[in-house]
Simulated scan of single mutants.
Amino acid sequence: MPDLHEWISQKIDAAEQRAQACPPWPWTFDADWEEVKAADGIVVADVFALSGRQLRATGEFIAANDPAAALRRCTADRKILARHNVNPAWADWPSQAVACYGCGVESDCDWPVTENINDCPELLDIAEGYGLTADEHAQLDRPAPPPRKTCTSGKTLGQAIADVFDEFTAVQLDETFLGNVTAHKFTGLMPIAVELLPPTPIQRALDILGPHLQDEPLYRPTA
């Protein structure tokens, strides 16, 4: 079964196909001949079996609901479908991946008003116009958020977080120099330099003198 959004899309497709297969419009009601005619003169409906007010009302109703009107309704419904849909930008947030973007957000956390597209009030109103019943709605597929990723490697939470930081840094910084910024790699939750900036003159001097100062109690090597 489709979800609510796809169910409405299918109904719109079917309505468009029916309208496009009809005779040319506009249609008009000829009260004298008790007929509804298309633009090319083809009779599309006879209402002579009716009488009085019912005859005229039926003829005028058929003429007013010609294929052009049906296609306008389909166009309007598609615009609503385009607004009330899931937001691709929320795909990285599993709990919001199937929320209705068109219904907006609320609270300080910008939480979606409609957490599942099948519960969208706008779509439910459109679907009612296409004949959706409560039983049919219950049978529709209900979009579910993607499963959350779980750690199955036996790592601790800190190790798992560290790995995520490492992957992000490798992609975003490519572990290279960025101007005067040193690229870092995360180990645990502490950034450790992977590439060092060029040493200062003092650092170079300490590197040279280091072996000769090992026995000095106040000297502490930097590496």
Rank of each mutant, 00 (worst) to 15 (best):
P2K: 15
L4M: 02
E6R: 15
A14L: 10
A15R: 09
Q20E: 08
Q20F: 00
A21G: 06
C22R: 09
P24F: 00
W27L: 05
T28S: 15
D30P: 01
A31D: 08
D32C: 02
E34Q: 09
G41D: 01
A45C: 00
V47F: 01
L50N: 05
G52M: 03
G52Q: 07
R53T: 11
G59H: 04
A63L: 05
A63S: 06
D66A: 05
A68S: 05
A70C: 01
R72V: 01
R73D: 10
C74D: 06
R83N: 07
H84E: 04
V86D: 10
P88G: 00
W93T: 14
P94W: 09
P94R: 07
C100D: 14
G102Q: 04
G102M: 09
E106S: 08
S107L: 05
S107G: 08
D110W: 02
P112D: 11
N116Q: 14
N116I: 01
N116K: 14
N116L: 11
L124Y: 00
D125N: 13
G129H: 04
E136T: 03
Q139H: 00
L140W: 06
R142Q: 14
R142P: 08
K149I: 12
S153E: 14
L157H: 13
A160S: 13
F165C: 07
Q172M: 06
L173K: 05
D174G: 14
E175S: 01
F177A: 12
G179C: 11
G179I: 13
T182S: 12
H184Y: 15
P198V: 04
T200M: 01
Q203D: 08
R204K: 08
A205P: 04
A205D: 09
D207Y: 06
L209I: 14
L209S: 13
L213M: 13
E216M: 10
E216D: 15
